Simulated assay, not measured.
Amino acid sequence: MYEDYQNQLNILSEKGNLRSLKEIEPLGGPWVQYQGKRMLNLSSNDYLGIAHDPQHLRNFYAQITEDALFDQFGLSATSSRLLTGNHPAYGEFERLLCHYYQKTGALLFNSGYHANVGILPALLGKKDLILSDKLNHASIIDGARLCDADLIRYRHLNYEHLRSFLKKYRHKYEQVVIITETIFSMDGDIADLRELCKIKEEYDCMLYIDEAHAIGTRGEQGLGICEEQQVINKVDIISCPMGKGMASMGCFTVMNEVLKDYLINKMRPLIFTTALPPINVSWSVYVFRDFVKRTKKRGHLNSVSEHVQKTMVLNHLNAPSQSNIIPLIIGENEATVQLAENLQQNGFLVFPIRPPAVAQGSARLRISLTADMQIQDLEPFLELLKNNP
């Protein structure tokens, strides 16, 4: 048995696809230490620079009092939310979310993956259909596969292709859910939610939106692409994993109260999972209250991202993007690995992204920009890319 596993690992290694865990030490701000070298971290999802800002931690921990020690700052929930794990911090956060999103229901989950593999199977059955953007995250695909519903994947951002499936199949199904990310994690491009809302209404579908890479960074208050494109009130489920721009853990979703009550009764990963610790939920409340006010920080991140995008275009690099996630597409695995190693040797932490995470022949560097970076930090990096053969 172990021989067979080792042989499979050897094959992955020969193809340049073997993965390993890396020890990376944060140094504050966008800087880390990796393999004994100080580097600018261009692989982080800490988009607003909150996770490694010591002032945020000081502000948060300054709230700890003896009276609030267990309700707000306990280190374990010890139970599921349906038993004794539903601490007051949960209710505070969910009410806050309903206020900002103007929805009647909100729910917290343990992760974005946890939400996506639980919501779809709870809502859909054998007479239903899921229409998913082809480049949606693995958690969405896995959630769809756990369903009894049928799954069709439409071409990436191709809404005429989506319409063609609805014209052909909508009448055969009771419930149809269209699901998409807003900012796509490996491409940095953005879904047209206004068009999806039109399609949803035209064909009487449910629209499920995953804002994993937009929460905190986009929209006037940082509520994501749904806010930016002014469609919050038209989207049925908005899911926001909190491990990226919010520098926390877990995932919040907003929806109407009927869907919330249904999920509480039907969603197995919610019913049978120990709840998040109160301290984590309290931290998420703190971060959310803070980032909705950080318009200047979002503006800075967008300015830095635009500068890097324009410079790459001028340098004839294949790096299309509409966000702070910029894919530098190389193509071949070996060349991508070599470029990543060269950049690391020069003080820039970038990792190669290879199949199966992306399509064959589209290996790339996923450059992730954060709000605590300055343009001058990035100029040497851009110069290295310009001069890369």
Score class of each variant (00 low, 15 high):
Thr311Glu: 06
Ser323Thr: 04
Val304Asp: 15
Val337Glu: 03
Gln344Thr: 11
Ser321His: 03
Asn324Ala: 01
Asn333Phe: 02
Val350Ala: 07
Leu317Ser: 13
Leu317Gln: 15
Asn315Glu: 15
Ala319Asp: 07
Asn315Ile: 05
Gly347Leu: 12
Val308Tyr: 03
Ser323His: 00
Leu343Gly: 10
Val308Asn: 02
Ala319Lys: 02
Phe348Gly: 09
Asn318Arg: 07
Leu314Thr: 01
Leu339Ser: 08
Glu332Cys: 03
Asn318Thr: 06
Ile325Glu: 04
Asn318Met: 10
Val308Asp: 00
Leu339Lys: 09
Asn342Cys: 06
His316Gly: 06
Thr311Tyr: 06
Lys310Thr: 06
Gln345Tyr: 04
Leu349Ser: 06
His316Phe: 09
Thr336Glu: 01
Glu306Cys: 10
Ser323Ile: 01
Ile330Leu: 14
Ser323Asn: 01
Gln344Glu: 09
Lys310Asn: 13
Pro320Gln: 09
Leu343His: 10
Ile325Tyr: 02
Ser305Cys: 01
Ile330Glu: 05
Gln309Thr: 00
Asn346Asp: 04
Leu314Gly: 00
Glu334Trp: 03
Val308Leu: 08
Leu349Asn: 08
Asn318His: 13
Asn318Ser: 11
Gly331His: 02
Ala335Ser: 12
Ala319Pro: 07
Leu343Asn: 15
Gln338Ile: 04
Ser323Phe: 01
Ile329His: 02
